[in-house]
Design a protein around this nucleic acid. Structure first.
Length: 294
DNA sequence: AGTGGGACCTGTCCGC
DNA sequence: TGCGGACAGGTCCCAC
């Protein structure tokens, strides 16, 4: 599910529901997600007012008034729902329920935050590839999961010259290089496929072939531009929602309807009508147009 | 050093 | 209808 645009959407939803409020109660319904919750996790959060939310790559960070920082990663299937006044508000790209169904505890509801205003924030994650951690805010930059993360693709430090710098001499395929979180923070399988399609670049092309004597090939300018564009469009659309729930409604993210190639193997390329092809690169599906992408 | 593959989990869908 | 296998938005860790 969650790449940069979806994480950004969820982060904004959490910010709206939680920022400025105090955490009255933290309920852990199991001892771990991808990793065990740290010692004293619930106790460190309880009673804290949440000052602000941030996103770094696909991580959500919440600053607590006491100087601690709550770190959240949604993995593949992590979701949040906000229950206020018996009603579940859609949180980002996800689901919407009301009344009794909303209150029924799901088998994969692993964490429940209750706020001082009675709002309950429920974290659901069937596959449990998500994670949560808490640590002093001053240690965020050196946190083992954050310290190696590359530049934010929507930030000012991301441009063709940066791509040239990190791609120089690289024999890895473009697809793999763009997915490498140490180079670019937050791209995932969908948006890499879409950006490469828009830029007309073949996913198997070696990254280093777009750098000449340290200077970016003009196609890197296009690539950087399209990465920003596709991410921004997806954020505006509220992210993408795949593998729908039974309770979906119009409040889901809508960007999946605008995929040009992702999950469209066999369909006609919007540009040239050739069938979109699916290949596997390092164990993951890549979708592309063999005619438009060189 | 850099890369590919397996592992971690559960749910869903498709073909037989 | 049931069952096995493939596959899913991520990424850590460990062999090459």
């Amino acid at each position: 599910m969650p790449e940069l645009p979806e994480v950004e959407t969820v982060m904004r939803g959490l910010e709206k529901a939680m920022a400025g409020h105090r955490i009255a109660c933290v309920e852990l319904r199991r001892k771990d997600l991808r990793f065990p919750f740290p010692e004293g996790f619930a106790e460190r959060l309880t009673g804290q007012r949440i000052e602000a939310f941030r996103r770094r790559a696909k991580y959500i960070l919440a600053d607590l008034e006491g100087g601690d920082c709550l770190l959240i990663h949604l993995g593949m299937s992590g979701r949040f729902a906000v229950v206020a006044g018996g009603r579940v508000r859609n949180l980002g790209a996800f689901y919407f329920e009301e009344g009794a169904a909303a209150e029924a505890q799901g088998a994969h509801d692993h964490v429940v935050f209750t706020l001082d205003d009675g709002t309950r924030i429920i974290y659901t994650d069937p596959r449990r590839f998500g994670l949560m951690d808490v640590f002093p805010r001053s240690e965020a930059a050196s946190h083992r999961l954050l310290e190696e993360i590359g530049v934010e693709p929507l930030g000012n430090d991301f441009h063709a010259a940066y791509l040239a710098e990190v791609f120089a001499g690289k024999k890895a395929p473009l697809k793999a290089a763009l997915l490498d979180q140490r180079l670019i923070a937050g791209l995932g399988n969908i948006y890499v496929c879409e950006a490469l399609y828009r830029a007309g670049l073949a996913p198997r092309r070696k990254a280093g072939t777009l750098v000449r004597r340290g200077k970016p090939d003009p196609r890197l300018e296009e690539l950087a531009r399209h990465i920003k564009a596709v991410l921004n469009e997806a954020i505006v659309a509220g992210g993408s929602t795949l593998r729908d729930f039974s309770h979906t409604d119009g409040s889901n993210g809508g960007f999946q309807e605008r995929f040009s190639v992702y999950d469209r193997a066999g369909e006609a390329c919007p540009r040239c009508q050739m069938p979109i092809r699916r290949i596997v690169q390092s164990g993951r599906s890549t979708f592309y147009c063999p005619s438009c992408q060189k």
